[in-house]
Amino acid sequence: MQRTKRTLFAGIATAGIAALTLAGCSSTEAEALDNGDRQDLTIAVFNGWDEGIAASELWKAILEEQGYDVTLEYADPAPAYSGLTTDDYDVVLDTWLPITHADYIEQYGDDMVDLGAWNEDAALTIAVNEDAPIDSLAELADNADLFGNQLVGIESGSGLNRVTTESVIPAYGLEDLEYTTSSTPAMLSELKAATDAGENVAVTLWTPHWAYDAFPIKTLEDPEGALGDAESIHSFGSKSFTEDFPTLSGWLEDFTMDSDLLYSLENAMFNEYDGDDYGPVVADWIADNQEYVDSLTS
């Protein structure tokens, strides 16, 4: 994806080239903010990852109040990270380390900027309904028939899918289960339908996620450690990010958001609200958390 370029002048006679060059310089300067940052900003948002959508929508609202022209571009991780290395995207706020997105950072990290972690409580999970007759992944294979012999996953290109396929399934002998991958919304739809009907269900999930507040579910214990330890959620900028956005770079380096705050924002956006125009929802949340929000750009 190439960011749209503004065409400031067209059909100009050759005689006006010198004057237009000066005008072009003025236009470029006009697109810089008083704080030294470039005005237009493109945030890459991973499809289906609600904490990243929430954080991106929050920063979009905050930065637009500061005069930035912010665009959110949804993409899967691979094209998002590739786009950061070529400055097609400016920043992504949802990199999980040291496990989930490690392959992408190994491949693209030399041409990106790590702006630090803003949440330290991230973890990949396998979740089941709260009243399921098992409490551990070690019990799932022997009780697969109680779950329709199915494990419901999310996007095939996600880090969670890779960990599930390469680590969890072989570690616990789950090869005979039908492991389906589609999308996070599809997984959540199946989770809701099963819990509403009082049926057993097993899904790949993660924390922090609003589903843990919305549905009666529990995390299966992982005695083999196949899902890895708790992770941190980092912001990564493009190779030119600190040069193009010196002020925003500092804000994002200082950005922290604990899980309780994140849950409340996610609940407002994805559970209590049924729609995709998050602007008014985020504005209401900001009004309820104004002191915290003001601190992000202080």
Rank of each mutant, 00 (worst) to 15 (best):
A80Y: 00
I53Y: 01
E64R: 11
T71N: 11
S82D: 12
P77C: 10
P77V: 05
I53C: 00
A78K: 14
Y81I: 01
A54H: 03
L63R: 06
D76S: 11
I62T: 08
A80D: 09
Y81A: 01
E65C: 09
L58D: 00
D50Q: 11
Y74H: 14
L72V: 01
K60T: 10
A55V: 15
E64C: 02
V70Q: 00
S56Q: 08
G52E: 04
A61Q: 13
Q66I: 03
N47V: 02
Y68P: 08
G83T: 06
G52K: 00
E57K: 06
W49N: 10
L58S: 00
Y74G: 07
Y68A: 03
E51V: 13
L72C: 10
Y81V: 00
Q66G: 07
K60F: 01
D69A: 13
P77F: 05
A78L: 15
L63G: 10
A54T: 05
W49I: 06
E64K: 05
A78H: 13
E57W: 06
G83P: 07
P79F: 05
G52N: 04
I53K: 01
E51F: 12
E65K: 15
V70Y: 05
A55K: 06
G83I: 09
S82A: 15
D76P: 06
T71F: 08
Y68E: 05
Q66P: 05
I62V: 15
A55T: 15
S56E: 04
P77N: 13
D50Y: 12
G83L: 03
A75D: 12
K60R: 15
E64Y: 06
Q66K: 15
G48V: 02
A54Y: 01
D76G: 08
S82W: 12
A75G: 12
D50M: 06
G83V: 11
E51S: 08
V70G: 00
A55Y: 01
G67Q: 09
A61P: 07
N47Y: 14
A55C: 12
E64Q: 15
G67P: 06
Y74A: 14
V70T: 02
D69G: 10
E64D: 08
T71V: 09
Y81F: 15
G48N: 04
A78Y: 14
Q66V: 01
D69S: 13
L63D: 05
